[in-house]
């Protein structure tokens, strides 16, 4: 059991998402940074889809009701347990009664707390993720509040402390800049409805992430990108990552809590292997889009799988070395 003591902003229980109900209009939800959630689960020996807590703002404080292993991944945070500092991307053991205090977030936008065995809220429509729009899943279908108790299936097996190289170091792209997140996108259905100069504007701009950005979508600010002629489309199926251009010419990236359909013209779609980078981009920060081919988008997913395989192998090896001793 975990007791929430204090929370800022909409923290929620999330697994990788709800994928089988999309045709009925039920969005995926799921961790905005799926890589961080997977890594946290891998180092704890969990199923990668085990539910964790997504923490978008600090301070955040909770108490462990029993001994259990846990991990913090995702955003760079200043965190303490029982008064002792926890390095970034770290797995460790909490004792019953220990208070975890996440005091500040120095880089990234979402921290993930995973626990051995996962957060054991009921599975609803195939997932433990909180669906904000439908108000189901997670804990009572809503963000966490002080006083909430989260059930855990945690085993009390003691495992040693271990750090993981943060994914943005391992998966850094060669063109990465400190003040800008660059994400790869494939062009989408209405790309050709924009003239060459406008297309160029879309690629060359450094887009500002406005405060109207959240789990539903990121609203960006920059030069107006408008189609050659106004486009009126019927609502049609869209997926997280789709970049729409509403009439004001300011792009919207649909995220995990997006609706399953929309009518705005689509200029491009963030590839799945880079969606976590958007999830970790901060309000007020900057985004740039890099055009990529469909084949390269698939190759990027293979690269992600290879990274996770390598991590699993590394964890197994280190555990074996430690047990040998």
């Amino acid at each position: 059991m975990i007791e929430i003591l204090s929370v800022t902003g909409p923290a929620s229980v999330q697994d990788l998402g709800r994928f089988d109900q999309y045709r009925f209009g039920v969005g995926t939800s799921g961790a905005m940074d799926d890589v961080a959630l997977r890594v946290g689960n891998i180092v704890l020996g969990n199923d990668e889809n085990a539910a964790g807590i997504e923490i978008p703002m600090t301070p955040f404080k909770l108490r462990f009701g029993r001994d259990m292993a846990f991990a913090l991944t995702g955003a760079g945070v200043e965190a303490e347990i029982a008064g002792r500092a926890i390095p970034p991307w770290w797995r460790l053991h909490a004792r019953a009664g220990d208070i975890l205090n996440i005091k500040a977030m120095s880089c990234g936008a979402r921290s993930y707390l995973t626990v051995s065995g996962g957060i054991d809220v009921p599975v609803v429509l195939g997932s433990r993720s909180t669906q904000f729009r439908g108000e189901f899943g997670g804990l009572h279908g809503r963000p966490l509040l002080p006083g909430d108790s989260l059930p855990c299936t945690a085993s009390t097996t003691t495992i040693g402390e271990l750090g993981i190289e943060p994914a943005d170091i391992t998966l850094a792209r060669s063109n990465a800049a400190a003040d800008e997140t660059i994400v790869r996108v494939v062009i989408a259905g209405e790309y050709d409805a924009f003239d060459a100069a406008t297309q160029e504007l879309f690629w060359s701009s450094s887009w500002k992430i406005t405060p109207q950005s959240n789990r539903y979508g990121y609203r960006l600010q920059g030069p107006a990108v408008k189609p050659k002629a106004p486009i009126e489309k019927r609502s049609h199926g869209i997926v997280p990552g789709v970049i729409q251009i509403p009439p004001n010419g300011q792009p919207i990236i649909q995220m995990r809590d997006a609706q399953t359909s929309g009518g705005y013209p689509k200029i491009a779609t963030v590839i799945r292997a880079d969606l976590w980078r958007v999830g970790q981009a901060r309000l007020g920060g900057r985004l740039r889009f890099e055009q990529t081919a469909y084949a390269d988008a698939l190759a990027a997913e293979d690269g992600m799988s290879a990274y996770l395989d390598r991590l699993r192998t590394n964890v197994r090896l280190v555990e074996e070395i430690r047990t040998c001793r």
Partner: peptide, 14 residues
């Protein structure tokens, strides 16, 4: 207390 890390592949052992 942690005095440093040993990097082994993708992991850091304290």
């Amino acid at each position: 207390a942690i005095v440093g890390l040993v990097k082994i592949g993708l992991l850091y052992a304290p």
